[in-house]
């Protein structure tokens, strides 16, 4: 069933799935925090600025669940 599935599949910052649907929750690691935004990286190295007010406080190294450019949760280690 899962042969051929990449390590990240569509759960990356550049995936082109349905943003309006809940499946587009993307785990990203925080690289640095600046004010209400954080530079984050997904599992294949894509980087993006993510708004982090809704999960503050945030530290470098934490893994966040993002949706539509906004972090909505933290992923437990």
């Amino acid at each position: 069933m899962m042969e051929g599935a990449g390590p990240a599949g569509y759960c990356t910052l550049d995936h082109d799935g349905c943003v309006t649907c809940s499946d587009a929750g993307i785990p990203v690691r925080v690289l640095s925090v600046r004010g209400d935004d954080a530079l984050c990286e997904d599992s294949v190295g894509n980087r993006a600025q993510i708004a982090v007010e809704l999960v503050a406080p945030v530290r470098s190294g934490e893994v966040l669940l993002t949706h539509g450019g906004v972090a909505i949760g933290k992923v437990a280690g």
Binding site: V19, T20, C21, S22, G25, A51, E53, L54, H67, G68, G69, V70, I72
Partner: peptide, 16 residues
């Protein structure tokens, strides 16, 4: 703006 409660926070944050 469209979506369930997953997406609504991003709209809310944008309006804030």
């Amino acid at each position: 703006a469209i979506g369930f409660e997953t997406t609504a926070p991003s709209t809310a944050l944008t309006l804030l």
